[in-house]
Write a protein that binds this DNA or RNA. Structure first.
Length: 824
DNA sequence: CTTCTAATCCCGA
DNA sequence: TCGGGATTAGAAG
């Protein structure tokens, strides 16, 4: 045999293979063909037993021009060699000669002869390493032109082209294949360079910002006049920096993917945000001068930055990388949304005319929607068609400092504790940023909440929102909420929210006397149809979920905290309960009230089953649940019944009536027909109505021991609450001595009262109560009972017990109406 | 040295 | 079986 396979260790695949390397024979094909010696282009005479040669020897052999000449085969060979001659012009004379000879010396026999001759020459000819060749410029031109029109030619086109160019179809195919991959790598490289540029730009920007952050410190020692501005400026820089860091990380991840190696982002090596003590501590107490000129141009990220990148990518659905990118993309979207929402909140909280105007009655403020739409770009998209808007604003002095309020708002547990009647349930689902420099400034988190109006006629509002906290100046903070249902589809749950919160929240400013001025804005869009018509006016006026209610609750709760903090026990509080006993009782009352709210609004804290029994009034909602393993309430089947009615009585009068222990017998069956007695009283506010008390019902007869009732009452501008529960006497003793209240089992019942003006319903006419406040002449009263119907959790609910509770509730309502002489 | 390119190997649809 | 990604090694810069 005149040529042979050799061990080719360079080929991929690990093990040595036998490869017949046939110089200049581009018909030569896969090693398989050669191995099998079935190559049709081989002159049959040339085939003999393959033998293995040492690679070096084989190379020498094949590198000899003689060999290549000799092996030139096939009809395409002619053109090939011509091209080769062109390409290699100027090479060593030997090579040239051989090529020049080729065109004329080709035939089967020539090859055969040449081959043998070459083998002989191999030893003495200088090595030539031309195994590969290039296509001629003409060929490439033709290929390119077809590629331009059609980078993916079908078999027919390739065949046609191969004939025209005297190339093998296989070569054409390879060419196109390679061309396509080449295009792809070029594209990637191009994108890579763009990303690199972007990266550099961000890096430079970051550097300059860090520089800018450092400088104010030096200039600060100079003049205190600029303090407000500097502080504000610094906040912006910090936020901007957070944004830059996020984007840089993202770009690094992308760039790293294309370069095939991780790129360390400059930011990762950056020291944590410096406390910048000289700046912060050097600020005087009256530092909120900058408040009036809060720039309306908060630094927002270029809106199309992230999107632009993701669109230009050839979409690599790789797993880990892309989720990382998605996550950081998501985070920067959140940040952008938060910043936009913050800007809107601050503006909407501080602008009066023409954004807000007073209602004709002179009371609450009404948002001017035309002006609103003109002023703000909708940051969570347009309002769904079926939704209506609700906007309210309220300002009030609250006995709390800004830091404490911010801390309360940013901690979901404290938040829920502060607004127990408003928040059925809440949790922080994700903390995107916990704040900068050890403060809540810049903190950004995802939250979930169920908001409630205490009535079975108003469904809970479930909202997912971003909460973003920002310090605007010394002693001036703002916390903004904004719904994220529009940009977050990750949850996968196809629950369409019945409510979305537009930028809402509060701006709080410390006052010198320990109070702070809180401006609250609540702005939401919701499906009006889900609310009972009885409540629609109230809710659309912002008295349901609106700012008035938040501020009123905040004021009342903070007042309560202030009273409990102060060591002086109220003079009114003559009952001698130890401080720890007071704490325990208040804690128990708190739990009672929370449970009451959960029962009224069917919050998901408990798993309530709605009941549609036959003999239940239309507007009475009855639910049951099983109570097991909760030491805080009796085990068994708990039945909850609730209804709401409108009464032509002011909330104050209704409240005073319901909380008066001496008038208890007029509506409460627990009173056994007689007055109750107040055994203990813990004041929770200036208003005597805000308190926790312990009542004793008179015994029905001598054999029966008297019953104790724990009661919590509260009232503020937005409504009132009377919640009570019968409690075990020995257990109550433990609590009053400071014992753990967690094991006191109770099931709360009670009333929620909200003001509702006469304008909301014509037929009921004017109030029968000529109170001083003409505007509020009616009330919406919610009555709710939770009753243990069977102490066996496995027991079935009987129709009787449902009817009993239904009767109880309607009787109570009737008695109250009768007592207040407003029978309708 | 790096980049380009024809070709090969190998894998997955 | 085919297309395409990874790889290879000679050619070219």
């Amino acid at each position: 045999m005149n040529f042979g396979g050799f061990l080719d260790n360079n080929s991929g695949g690990g093990g040595a293979r036998i490869v017949a390397d046939i110089p200049f024979n581009h018909n030569s094909s896969s090693s398989n063909d050669n191995k099998n010696n079935t190559n049709n282009n081989m002159p049959t005479g040339a085939i003999s037993q393959p033998r293995l040669l040492p690679q070096s020897l084989a190379k020498n052999m094949f590198n000899s021009p003689g060999l290549s000449l000799a092996l030139q085969t096939g009809m395409e060979g002619q053109n090939e060699v011509t091209r080769m001659a062109e390409n290699y012009e100027g090479n060593n004379s030997v090579g040239r000669r051989s090529r020049e000879e080729e065109p004329d010396s080709r035939s089967g026999s020539d090859n055969l002869e040449g081959a043998s001759g070459d083998e002989q020459d191999a030893a003495d000819k200088p090595p030539r390493k031309k195994r590969y060749h290039r296509h001629t410029p003409q060929q490439i031109q033709e290929l390119e032109s077809l590629f331009k029109e059609c980078p993916h030619p079908d078999e027919k086109q390739r065949l046609e082209l191969s004939k025209r160019l005297s190339l093998e179809t296989r070569q054409v195919k390879f060419w196109f294949q390679n061309r396509r991959t080449q295009m792809k790598t070029q594209l990637e490289r191009h994108e890579n360079s763009i990303l690199r540029q972007e990266n550099d730009k961000l890096r430079a920007e970051n550097m300059s910002i860090r520089e800018a952050m450092r400088n104010p410190i030096c200039t600060n020692c100079g003049g205190p006049a600029m303090i407000g501005e500097i502080s504000l400026e610094e906040q912006h820089l910090r936020i901007e920096n957070a944004r830059l860091k996020d984007e840089l990380d993202r770009v690094c991840a992308l760039a790293g993917k294309f370069l095939g190696r991780p790129i360390s982002s400059l930011v990762t090596s950056m020291p944590p945000p410096m406390p910048n003590s000289s700046l912060e501590l050097g600020v005087g107490s009256n530092g909120f001068g900058g408040m009036n000129n809060v720039p309306t141009t908060l630094p927002l990220a270029p809106p199309d930055f992230g999107v632009g990148i993701s669109n230009s990518l050839p979409v690599v659905p790789s797993t880990r990388q892309s989720t990382g990118i998605e996550r950081s993309l998501e985070r920067s979207m959140y940040l952008e949304l938060a910043l936009a929402a913050m800007e809107e909140l601050v503006k909407i909280a501080q602008t009066d005319e023409p954004l807000w105007f007073r209602s004709i009655e002179g009371g609450r403020e009404i948002l001017n929607h035309e002006e609103y739409i003109r002023t703000f770009t909708p940051c969570i998209g347009m309002r769904p068609n079926s939704f209506v808007s609700e906007a309210s604003r309220e300002t009030g002095m609250v006995i709390i400092n800004s830091l404490a309020l911010v801390e309360t708002l940013m901690d979901s547990n404290k938040w829920a504790e502060m607004f127990p009647c408003l928040i059925a349930r809440t949790s922080t689902t994700d903390v995107i940023s916990s704040g900068m420099g050890g403060t809540r400034n810049g903190a950004l988190q995802l939250m979930h909440a169920e908001l409630q109006v205490l009535s079975p006629l108003v469904p809970i509002r479930e909202v997912n929102f971003l909460r973003f906290c920002k310090q605007h100046a010394e002693g001036v903070w703002a916390v903004v909420d904004v719904s994220i249902d529009t940009i977050r589809e990750t949850s996968g749950a196809p629950t369409f929210p019945n409510c979305r919160r537009l930028p809402s929240g509060c701006v709080v400013q410390d006052m010198p006397n320990g109070y702070s001025k809180v401006t609250w804005v609540e702005h939401a869009e919701y499906e009006e149809g889900v609310n009972h018509h009885l409540y629609r006016q109230l809710i659309s006026a912002g008295m349901g979920f609106g700012a008035q209610r938040w501020v009123a609750t905040l004021q009342r709760q903070c007042e309560c905290l202030a009273i409990l903090m102060s060591s002086t026990v109220s003079a009114r509080d003559h009952t001698a309960i130890t401080p720890s006993g007071r704490r325990s009782m208040l804690k128990l009352a708190q739990r009672m009230t929370n449970n009451f709210c959960a029962g009224v609004c069917a919050s998901t804290v408990h798993k309530w089953n709605k009941l549609c029994a036959g003999n239940v009034d239309e507007d009475v909602r009855v639910m049951t649940r099983k109570s097991v393993d909760d030491p805080g309430e009796p085990a068994g089947i708990v039945l909850s019944a609730a209804t709401s009615v409108w009464l032509p009585v002011s909330p104050q009068r209704l409240f005073d009536f319901l909380r008066d222990e001496r008038l208890r017998s007029e509506w409460d069956i627990l009173s056994n027909g007689g007055p109750m007695q107040e055994m203990a009283h813990i004041a929770k506010g200036q208003d005597h109505g805000n308190c926790v008390s312990l009542l004793r019902a008179s015994a029905m007869n001598a054999n029966q021991s008297s019953m104790l009732i724990l009661q919590e009452t509260c009232i503020d501008a937005a409504g009132a609450l009377v919640v009570y529960a019968p409690v075990d006497i020995p257990a109550m003793h433990v609590v009053m001595n400071g014992g753990d209240s967690a094991y006191v089992a109770l099931l709360p019942s009670g009333f929620s009262i909200v003001p509702d003006g006469p304008g909301s319903r014509g037929s009921n006419g004017p109030s029968c109560n000529g109170g001083p406040d003409q505007r509020i002449s009616g009330s919406l009263l919610t009555v709710a009972f939770q009753i243990l119907v069977n102490s066996l959790p496995t027991a079935k609910l009987t129709v009787e017990s449902v009817e009993t509770v239904n009767n109880l509730i309607s009787c109570t309502v009737q008695k109250i109406k009768a007592a207040l002489q407003c029978e309708s």
